[in-house]
């Protein structure tokens, strides 16, 4: 089957084809899933090179699990997001040298946010504000508001309840607003 014709095949179908030795299925899955993995990892880690390593590692795990993939259990994209999340958390823990639950609130990084706002770079300002959020709030906000996933899927990825996802996104957004809004007003940046 040519690559173009694979656009109608589901992610699970492609994974089964790959497990049966179809390399083009790997190409199609890479084109389809790696941007999502990379986007999530980049925003979680705030580091492009590390995010690339995480994406490669997560995709490698997908290739390895393909022969054992059981249809109907989870969507490959959901599974991949979960792997990316775990890999990112591992890296963040190692970088901080402490357990996830012991992480203190990040120090105020508003000068950087302010600099990005002065440069009128909303994406950069948001990333800097995201970096200041506790990990779980950051995950939930990224998956909900940037990756555009529904709360039940986020709940699967984070292995928590849908209500917990809603709570985390609400708290995360409040914190983001607090980080961004005052500076925007000071700079006369509201529009």
């Amino acid at each position: 089957m040519p690559l173009d014709a694979m656009s109608d095949v589901s992610d699970t179908g492609l994974l089964v084809r790959f497990a049966n030795g179809d390399r083009l299925a790997a190409v199609a899955l890479t084109q389809r899933l790696s941007p999502r993995a990379l986007g999530f990892a980049t925003r979680m880690l705030g580091d492009a090179a590390e995010a690339e390593d995480v994406t490669q590692d997560a995709m490698l795990r997908l290739w390895k699990i393909a022969p054992e993939w059981r249809q109907g259990e989870a969507e490959p994209a959901t599974w991949l997001y979960r792997v990316v999340r775990n890999l990112c958390i591992d890296r963040l823990r190692k970088a901080r040298g402490v357990g996830l639950d012991q992480i203190a609130e990040p120090e105020d990084g508003t000068p950087s946010v302010e600099a990005a706002l002065i440069a009128q770079d909303r994406a950069a300002a948001l990333q800097l504000a995201l970096n200041q959020l506790p990990d779980r709030q950051r995950e939930a906000v990224i998956l909900r508001h940037i990756e555009g996933l529904a709360n039940p899927e986020i709940a699967q990825i984070m292995e928590i309840s849908t209500e917990a996802v809603e709570s985390l996104t609400a708290r995360g957004k409040r914190a983001l607003s607090a980080a961004l809004s005052p500076k925007r007003e000071e700079l006369g940046y509201d529009d």
Binding site: R23, S34, P35, G39, R122, L180
Partner: peptide
């Protein structure tokens, strides 16, 4: 407006990264 800006600047896998991923698949 910030989320829109972030989506518009979504990072895309470079050719080198895709090649690394496919090398692993091979």
């Amino acid at each position: 407006a910030y989320f829109d800006a972030a989506r518009a600047k979504a990072p895309q896998p470079s050719g080198a990264l895709q090649a690394r991923i496919l090398t692993d698949a091979d």
